[in-house]
């Protein structure tokens, strides 16, 4: 954490190496978060790139006052997703296209993995917007609960309750999908 703080301070001084390290540390996480939220590969790629460009432009305004760098970065990503969804004025998630799946060479494994992601995306559609945000930040963004709370502007207790209800709803939805498949 202290190392990250020092990296951020260097990045604020336009230290190329420090910003590159932050970029590498968060690139995949931001991509997964965006991909889960919007479910479109090309848009997720463009948006991930845009998140880091925006972060770079505004990092000098970032201050260590009650908010960590990761929470700040995910807030930028969240705002962009919200803008995107508002413009598209459609549901938050569409089916993930095939190329979002990891580039595994075994077709059977790819098919199985794809099924999982599709199920997950469909299942998250059954959640409320705030539950979906907790799942995206916690499982795709890999943020600890304290940071999720900062991004969402809620107390840790509220986020823990949301996390609980989200997983329960997710489980119900996945079980229902499994039952439908069997029938």
């Amino acid at each position: 954490m202290q190392e990250e703080e020092s990296l951020v301070r260097r990045a604020q001084q336009r230290d190329e190496e420090a910003f590159t390290q932050l970029y590498e540390a968060y690139f995949d996480k931001i991509y997964r978060y965006v991909a889960l939220k919007i479910g479109n590969k090309t848009e997720a790629e463009d948006m991930t790139q845009q998140v880091f460009s925006n972060a770079l432009q505004s990092i000098s305004s970032f201050k260590w006052r009650g908010i960590s760098f990761s929470a700040w970065l995910f807030r930028i990503a969240h705002n962009q997703v919200v803008d995107y969804l508002r413009k598209k004025s459609k549901q938050a998630t569409a089916l993930l296209d095939e190329s979002l799946v990891s580039s595994d060479s075994n077709p059977q494994l790819v098919a199985e993995h794809r099924l999982d992601i599709e199920q997950l995306v469909l299942a998250t559609k059954q959640l409320t917007e705030t539950q979906r945000e907790v799942v995206s930040l916690r499982f795709a963004g890999e943020l600890p609960i304290a940071q999720v709370a900062k991004v969402m502007g809620k107390s840790q207790g509220a986020v823990k309750a949301l996390q609980h209800s989200a997983i329960v709803a997710l489980r119900k939805s996945l079980l229902l999908a499994e039952d439908n498949e069997r029938d």
């Binding site: 190329e16 910003f19 590159t20 970029y23 690139f27 995949d28 991509y31 997964r32 991909a35 889960l36 790629e45 991930t48 790139q49 880091f52 460009s53 770079l56 190329s99 979002l100 799946v101 990891s102 580039s103 993995h113 999982d116 992601i117 199920q119 997950l120 799942v135 499982f139 795709a140 997983i167 997710l170 996945l174």
Partner: peptide
């Protein structure tokens, strides 16, 4: 299960393109 399903990776060509683009913006 959710965590495992989310273990998706950006395509290598996108990763390389994005890194290059980022380097240009950085400069």
């Amino acid at each position: 299960e959710a965590k495992e399903a989310l273990a998706i990776q950006p395509r290598p060509e996108f990763r390389a393109r994005a890194r290059y683009h980022f380097g240009s913006v950085l400069r």
